[in-house]
Write a protein that binds this DNA or RNA. Sequence first.
DNA 1: ATGCAACTTAGACTCAGTCTAGACCATTTT
DNA 2: AAAATGGTCTAGACTGAGTCTAAGTTGCAT
Lengths: 149, 149
Amino acid sequence: MNERADRFPVERSEVRAMLTRFGIQPTQQRIDIAHLLFQRPQHVSAEQVLEGVNAAYGHVSKATVYNTLNLFVRYGLINEVLIEPDRTLYDSNTSDHHHVYNMDTGELSDIPAGRLAIQGDLGLPEGTEIEGMEVLVRVRSGHDPAANR
Amino acid sequence: MNERADRFPVERSEVRAMLTRFGIQPTQQRIDIAHLLFQRPQHVSAEQVLEGVNAAYGHVSKATVYNTLNLFVRYGLINEVLIEPDRTLYDSNTSDHHHVYNMDTGELSDIPAGRLAIQGDLGLPEGTEIEGMEVLVRVRSGHDPAANR
DNA sequence: ATGCAACTTAGACTCAGTCTAGACCATTTT
DNA sequence: AAAATGGTCTAGACTGAGTCTAAGTTGCAT
């Protein structure tokens, strides 16, 4: 599979080439969205992308934002992250890594996969192959035991 | 924190005592829902609970199902599992374990935590404490490289 | 019995995400 | 040059999981 070099930020001029290299037709909207996503490794919701693009570039519709994000996911440019039950986050960092989620602040941060060693017998059924392995560490800020959430 | 003994099935007569032990008022609806959940370790959606209870016991409303499931999660009787972006699953197995998700079949199965060893430096910020650690292994059935999903 | 708080419910509501049908745009065909 | 082709974009309608509301019911305490 085609792999994006995880280097940030990806300059506007490079974005077009990157999309083309992935076999994605580089339209204005896709370039705008990709440029926003690849400014830095980040976790953003579709709504944030919509607002961000509309603030920094021209107008893009909600439908296009969703279409494009799903397209990028399918082509492996970004990853879906499911942590909050009510919205999907998109992760512009596709290097192998895990997540730490602070349940008090809602903050989500990365752990490079190399920092963790996972060993053991998964006991996978015959004929199944591993597609990916994600670790989610849930943490609390501590100093507030009366967690009201 | 109060811990449920992970033994299945939990007989109907035991369910009432279990709820009381957790400080949850054992109403008819909560007993029905709990009885359904603790027949065996399983991953069910709210809709499945609604259908299941209405099929096997008396009528329960959608609001009560959601209220009760969220209550059970808050009190640690069950866990939320976020894997599919469009619905929340509830896991009646609260013993420490991880998940294997077959992306082709949608099947979700468990790995006892004892089978996996995770080591490494999480590099957590000062003052944060670990609440939980989940591993999700995504697998494919294999024999169909032309994955159309 | 009576009062009161907790619980349940039908149905309205919200909101993330999808769908639709037409507009737009670039390239190719005639 | 005009028309056809095929892919993309968009406004707005739509869907469906989950929440909220306001009224009714239950059940415990006195």
